[in-house]
Amino acid sequence: MIDMATLTTVLAVPLALAFLLAGWRMVSGPSFADRFVALDMLTAIAVGFAALTTLATGRGAFLDIALGISLINFVATAAFAVFLERKRRRQ
Rank of each mutant, 00 (worst) to 15 (best):
P14N: 14
T57F: 09
D40H: 14
A66V: 06
A12R: 08
V37R: 05
A44T: 08
A61N: 11
R59F: 15
V82A: 10
T57P: 04
G29R: 05
A38S: 12
F32K: 07
M1D: 07
A16S: 12
L63E: 10
S28W: 11
F80S: 01
A79C: 11
L52S: 09
P14G: 12
I72C: 13
L7D: 08
T57G: 06
Q91A: 12
F62G: 03
T6R: 15
M1P: 11
A33I: 02
I69C: 09
M41S: 11
L67Q: 06
A18F: 04
V10Y: 08
A78Y: 04
W24N: 02
L20F: 15
L55V: 13
V10W: 06
A56R: 12
F19R: 02
S28R: 14
M41C: 04
A44Q: 13
A81S: 10
L39N: 03
T6M: 14
W24Q: 02
A18W: 05
L71P: 02
F74L: 15
T53E: 08
F36K: 00
L21S: 11
S31C: 02
D40T: 13
F36R: 00
R86E: 07
D34I: 00
T57V: 12
L15I: 12
V10K: 07
T77E: 04
T54H: 10
A79I: 10
S28L: 07
T9G: 05
L63D: 09
T57D: 08
I2T: 12
A22P: 07
G29H: 08
F74G: 04
A78R: 07
G48R: 02
F83I: 03
L71K: 03
A33Q: 12
I65M: 12
M26I: 06
T57R: 05
R25A: 12
V82L: 09
G23I: 05
A79Y: 14
F32T: 00
P14E: 13
I69H: 11
T57K: 03
L20M: 12
T9Q: 09
A12G: 04
G23K: 02
I69E: 13
R89C: 00
A33W: 01
L63S: 13
G29M: 04
A79G: 12
L84V: 05
A81G: 05
R25M: 09
A12I: 03
A18Q: 07
N73P: 00
F62A: 09
F19A: 10
A56D: 12
F36Q: 05
E85I: 00
A33L: 06
A46W: 07
F19Y: 11
F32I: 00
L71G: 09
A51K: 02
A66L: 11
G48I: 07
A81H: 02
I69F: 11
A61W: 12
G60W: 13
V82I: 14
F49L: 13
T54S: 10
K87S: 09
I2Q: 11
R86C: 00
F83A: 01
L15Q: 06
V37I: 15
G48A: 09
A76T: 02
G60K: 11
T57C: 03
L39C: 07
V47P: 10
T57I: 09
G29K: 04
I2D: 13
D64T: 15
D64G: 14
T9K: 07
R86W: 10
K87I: 00
T77H: 07
I69N: 10
